[in-house]
Design a protein around this nucleic acid. Sequence first.
DNA 1: CCCGTCTTAAACAGAC
DNA 2: CGTCTGTTTAAGACGG
Length: 695
Amino acid sequence: MMVESASETIRTASSNQNGVSSLTSQSEGGGREGGSNGDANGEISPVDLLHLQQQQALQAARQFLLQQATGLSSPSSNEVKQSPVQVPVSMAMMTPQMITPQQMQQILSPPQLQALLQQQQALMLQQLQEYYKKQQEQLHLQLLSQQQQVGKHAKEQQQLGSKQLAFQQQLIQMQQLQQQHILNLQRQGLVGIQPGQVPIQGLQQAMCPTDLQQLWKDVASVQNADEPIKHEGLDLSTNSSNTTSYTASKVSPQIPHHPLSNGQNSMHTPKRDRARLFEWISSFTKGESSDEHLTPYSKGTPLQSSHSSHEEHTASHPLYGHGECKWPGCEALCEDMGQFIKHLNSEHALDDRSTAQCRVQMQVVQQLEIQLAKESERLQAMMTHLHMRPSEPKPFNQPLNLASSASLLKRDSEPFPEGLPHPPTSAAAPITPLRQGPSVISSSSLHGVGPIRRRNSDKYCTPIASELAQNCEFYKNADVRPPFTYASLIRHAILESPERQLTLNEIYNWFTRMFAYFRRNTATWKNAVRHNLSLHKCFVRVENVKGAVWTVDEVEYQKRRPPKMTGSPTLVKNMISGLGFGSLNASYQAALAESSLSLLNSPTLLNNSTGASLNMLHVGHDDVSSTVEQVNSNGSCSPGLSPQQYGHQIHVKEEPAELEEDSRPMSLIASVTQNLSMPGDERDMEEELPTEELE
DNA sequence: CCCGTCTTAAACAGAC
DNA sequence: CGTCTGTTTAAGACGG
């Protein structure tokens, strides 16, 4: 059917503005980077959680120290120490009493504490990374699933579009936070590199009191069993270098254990202890999520970690890297794997201490998991709120790159697998390979491309403005047919222009500039455009000095569509604003969407930025965004004239123009998607389109 | 099945 | 004469 408009050599030199790529979401996320900590975010970020934990941990540590100083201790009870080993972590956490203060004292010498803290830090770091990873993955999966769904539920998609942006942003945020946090840790020396430097605060932040207690318990017990911990670190002197505060707290028993007081932490202490923990923990974690956890360390090393046993380590080992043992606190140098294994077996053999360390790590992990759970919950809530289905795999994008999720994460907004919309029918176009999906690929994008699309597209059409605003980049680069009717697109183009009027050629340019899809088969769609201009009364041709321009008669435009949906306006609103566009008749929907736009157009509306009024379409931000676009155009140009006015001036086709819709409440206008929206008017902006305009 | 909308195709006319 | 612009008609797809 489709005539291959081969004839149309035009091709507008598909000016792929690939460079554009960056989505708004990205930009936002990126902007934040500069800002130091994720704290900036009002919400509780993982980082915050970490800090909290650390603080708590510090407190606990301090308490222990105090106890020691006081001499409350009563040595003995080795059993206790062992018991922890067997006790499930949860139990252990629950029953701090198990460990007597005395034990703690014995075990926890300042240096030890420091060591522990160090370990904790390292662990935390790892955990953090894992945590972040998980979160990211989760987000990604969800996004992917959503995208997939899109295929099926196009309508929902549209809305999702905006939501997805938010999610992507969150993703980005997370990534940033992760990076930041890691950096911070490194700076602080938390990473374990420079024990002395670690500010106690860091530790404090890392753990919660309970955790710490437990940890301490465990550790204490272990140490007892293993070796009478030497107080190498004991003397403050050793540590003193970095930790001023630390000394204080540590040294002076009298000092109240205020959480705030600084404790110090670490020092070189038990390097060896950690390794075991690691493995042990890893064995646990693996069970749950295999390699993900390992990432930080084992990234390069695939799943080997899966061999819980310490011995297996073949080529790479999670606990071995850069020629040294990565066991927490142990930085023993190992020439090769063999040596490392030996070291591991000898130094980090399965004993109480190692076990205890593992326990500690487990707790850390648990803690993190709890955090993760919370965060996940939050995410779910968010998604729910946004009407996204958390996890509904859809056949659609499956090909999507789950695998590449990692990369996706990086891009934040790139998740566009985009395997989809290749227009089967019409040939492949030169279009942009990029496909950085609009942050949100709205259903529209997914729709079929060819003629087929039409109904679907319409149906799911969201308010064009918002849709376009959100997925502007996407449409620009992806060879996907926009889910809007020619009429709506034309109207949008015209309204978007400063003058609210465009010549045919300008309209063409707008199409080509805004949609990759319209960079091919020009004969076809141009013909369609002309056809629509002529056919629809809403498009009014105005003779101009330099020729003729096309304007939009909003009244007329509004007239046409609505007829169908006799239903209550509210219904309409809901449909549009809501996710359930599907039900609406395509045309009707389109009309609605557009109507919203039109409303926006009217100058009067501009003022009402209050989004309160729901009148016409109580469109969600979608509309709003669109509104914004409109607003812009309005503002810039002829504020005074409403489209209708133009219409009145020259009603070539008809003479409607009765009422002005301006009355419409355009609360929508408020939103701000301007950024997304394209350049107000093509003429001015034309940047990419070399072609016609210039002529 | 009818009707309306939308899209595509195509014929045609007028202007440049 | 060719192209662009604009109008019109027809047909098919869709959905209510």
